[in-house]
Design a protein around this nucleic acid. Structure first.
Length: 373
RNA sequence: GACUCGUUGGUUACG
């Protein structure tokens, strides 16, 4: 029970839901926190129905269970259900409110997030962090700063979020300034600054110097440094980091596949892909794109068909591979087969026709788009 | 001990 929580949590992070379930099933009368941990595990792994089934099976669900279910809905894009669920709650605490604010923000409803924040009873620092994050992620730095000034006190989260916000706007100097004003930046904040340096290639020296100065490094730090070299096409440096990392996870491996693909070394990319201990849709898609960008459309297609679970990004990548090769017939065929046609899928078509010189067709698609931007 | 906020990899566009 006590360590069952940790086990379930660990397994959930490793996508080992079956093992999490096994731990759970080994308990004859699981305490409520263990039920909640399992619910969260399902929710984080996109198993919403299972999460709900767990919730319904909890003998005496407390507020934490309700909050967990609320977040599970929100994190799986079920905003409406989340809101109805929130409204149906007999009791709410600050965590429920924070979860609802985050639910709106993460699903793109900034105004509703703000309204909820403004009317919640007793916002705590997490509430403030949540609303600042919402504005920062949208790129509204002015409002983010305004809210930041009204916060009772700064937190590691708010500091990190602001560094990230400036970085995402390409304002690296200001990001650095904020970062340097931070008294004792934690690993996440350092990683964020590292990522800011990594995103362009203009700041490789600063990236590696920060990386070397970091006293605490986690997997994300290493992966971010790796990515910095990959972005700059510094294959040898990337290989050096990859070889010396304490731990290589699926993110590290995928970065290397991308690196080789960008360098035009399909053999190395494929060798790396084949050696990956575990593969997720992102890894498959990276390899698929490597084939496509190097003109191997047939290989890309048969590889695509082999992907065990194709998410929407994988579909988009196959479509884009054809579109970029000028084969709009094949691109459209993929597009038509898509279960979900997101913005990227539409953009790829419009852009593909435009690049092929078929302007009128591009415009026709553009006008048919559900939401234009 | 469980529930809410921040960092890294794959697709398009944006930059």
């Amino acid at each position: 029970s006590y360590l069952a929580n940790h086990l379930i949590d660990m397994y959930a992070r490793c996508d080992s839901l079956a093992e999490a379930r096994a731990v759970f099933d080994s308990l004859e009368r699981p305490p409520t926190p263990v039920w909640t941990a399992l619910l969260v595990a399902y929710g984080r792994n996109k198993k919403l129905d299972e999460a709900r089934a767990v919730f319904d099976a909890i003998p005496r669900p407390n507020l934490a269970c309700w909050n967990a279910m609320l977040s599970a809905y929100a994190q799986n894009g079920r905003l409406r259900t989340a809101r109805d669920f929130f409204d149906s709650m007999q009791r709410r605490n600050v965590i429920s409110w924070n979860a609802m604010v985050a639910a709106y923000a993460q699903n793109g409803y900034l105004e509703e997030a703000r309204q909820t924040f403004d009317k919640m009873p007793d916002p705590d620092l997490v509430s403030w962090n949540t609303i600042v994050t919402a504005y920062a992620k949208r790129g509204d730095l002015v409002e983010a700063r305004k809210l930041l000034r009204r916060m009772p006190k700064q937190t590691p989260v708010s500091q990190t979020v602001m560094v990230l916000a400036y970085a995402q706007e390409g304002r690296i100097d200001e990001a650095r300034e904020l970062f340097e004003q931070t008294r004792h930046p934690d690993v996440l904040c350092c990683n964020t600054m590292l990522g800011a340096y990594a995103q362009t290639g203009q700041h490789l020296v600063e990236a590696s110097s920060l990386f070397d100065r970091m006293v605490a490094k986690d997997d994300v730090s290493w992966n971010t440094m790796l990515k910095a070299y990959v972005t700059c096409g510094e294959i040898e440096k990337a290989e050096g980091v990859f070889a010396s990392m304490p731990r290589r996870d699926v993110v590290s491996w995928t970065s290397m596949v991308t690196a080789y693909g960008q360098a035009g070394d399909l053999e190395a990319a494929r060798r790396t892909f084949d050696k990956m201990p575990s593969k997720d849709p992102a890894a498959w898609t990276a390899m698929l794109t490597a084939y496509g960008r190097n003109g191997e459309l047939e290989e890309a297609r048969s590889f695509f068909e082999d992907i065990p679970t194709k998410d929407s990004v994988a579909w988009n990548a196959m479509e884009a591979a054809y579109a970029q090769a000028g084969d709009m017939v094949a691109a459209v065929e993929i597009f038509k087969r898509m279960a979900v046609k997101d913005q990227s899928a539409w953009n790829t078509l419009v852009n593909g026709y435009a690049q092929a010189g078929e302007i009128q067709e591009a415009k026709r698609i553009f006008d048919a788009m559900p939401q234009r931007d």
